[in-house]
Amino acid sequence: MNSMDVEVIRTAMDWMNRGHRVVLGTVVRTWGSSPRPPGSLMIIRDDGQVAGSLSGGCIEDDLIDRVKRGELAPRLPQATTYGVTAEEAQRFGLPCGGTVQIVLEPLSAQSLLRDMLAAIESHRVIRRRLELATGLVSLRPCDDGDALRFDGQVLETVHGPRLRLVIIGGGQLSRYLASMAVMLDYRVTVCDPREEYHEGWAEMEGVTLSRLMPDDLVIAMNLDANSALVAVTHDPKLDDLALMEALKTPAFYVGALGSRRNNDNRRLRLKDFDVSETELLKLRGPVGLNLGAKTPPEIAMSIVAEMTAARRGVDLTGPLADWSGSQTECRVSA
């Protein structure tokens, strides 16, 4: 669950506390092209106010009208589908004839929203189970992936902490990288013990500045499978300290800026810190997709693109991930 969806749940609780009837909509399945992926949330209040989005505006007006009239989920959850026919897809503006299935759930104290938020705020990942026939909701710890499950009778969704990104180095590239990561809903920590790189970070929303040595910070943060780390200082005394600890964690992405030659040398150095061959295979360097990026914003974009691909399980062995023919020795200074 990302921060936008957490705000949707908090808003739902606020509306309920003020005496409103609230219906929660969850995208459970899509066919063809769809603006919003499974797991997207929207709440509809009894007077038509909404928060969140299920289709980027395609079907919201119809849903709002039907919920206000009491046609959908008046007492128990139910599923509804938009875009079954080409005519309906055109009517609602669904792109490329896409189809979206939504589960609508009337919220109450039995929806366990407060318990779910408490778990998220405690950095725990939970699976929420909703029985459509009864409206019964249950929560349990989750360690089996983040996939949404819906079989027509039971909806299971996974909710937990936001993604984390650690950036080693507080230079110009780091500012672009941090800004883009925040927009993608990462909680960003910038680590740089060098005082000359601290100016301005306190004013950047969604970013925390750490003055710890990089290895100490990585150990303290206990990086998990929702975590990524990118080292961009070009200084082995900082980058290598972070990498040697990050590569031993379940972090889904660990990368380092620099040319192929520099990264080959870095791998040799890391072996001296007892980093195994298996762990070294996790290191992405040169970091980012090979987009021909030159400027700091372009390089930051290539990095977050590769991070997104890694998180989504996209094959990263294709041409955009191949640096073997690159003549670039140093992409940018930190």
Rank of each mutant, 00 (worst) to 15 (best):
Arg187Thr: 13
Arg162Thr: 11
Pro161Glu: 07
Leu155Ser: 06
Asp185Arg: 09
Val190Pro: 11
Thr189Tyr: 03
Leu173Pro: 03
Val166Ile: 11
Ser179His: 05
Ser179Cys: 03
Val166Met: 13
Gln172Ala: 14
Asp185His: 12
Val190His: 04
Ala178Ile: 05
Leu163Asn: 03
His159Gln: 06
Arg162Trp: 09
Ser174Met: 01
Arg175Tyr: 02
Gly169Tyr: 01
Ile168Phe: 00
Val166Thr: 09
Ala178Cys: 07
Met180Gly: 12
Gly170Thr: 02
Arg187Glu: 11
His159Tyr: 02
Val182Trp: 04
Thr189Glu: 02
Tyr176Lys: 05
Arg187His: 09
Tyr186Met: 08
Ser174Asp: 08
Val154Tyr: 04
Gly170Arg: 02
Gly170Phe: 15
Val158Trp: 00
Val158Ser: 00
Val190Phe: 03
Val188Ile: 10
Thr157Asn: 06
Leu177Val: 03
Arg187Ile: 10
Gly160Ile: 13
Arg187Gln: 13
Val188Met: 06
Val182Ser: 04
Leu163Lys: 12
Arg164Ala: 12
Leu155Arg: 14
Tyr176Ile: 09
Thr157Cys: 01
Arg162Glu: 14
Tyr186Gln: 08
Leu163His: 13
Arg187Cys: 14
Val154Ile: 10
Arg187Lys: 13
Val166Asn: 12
Gln172Gly: 02
Arg162Gln: 04
His159Val: 01
Val190Thr: 03
Leu165Pro: 02
Leu173Tyr: 00
Met183Glu: 10
Asp185Trp: 10
Gly170Glu: 09
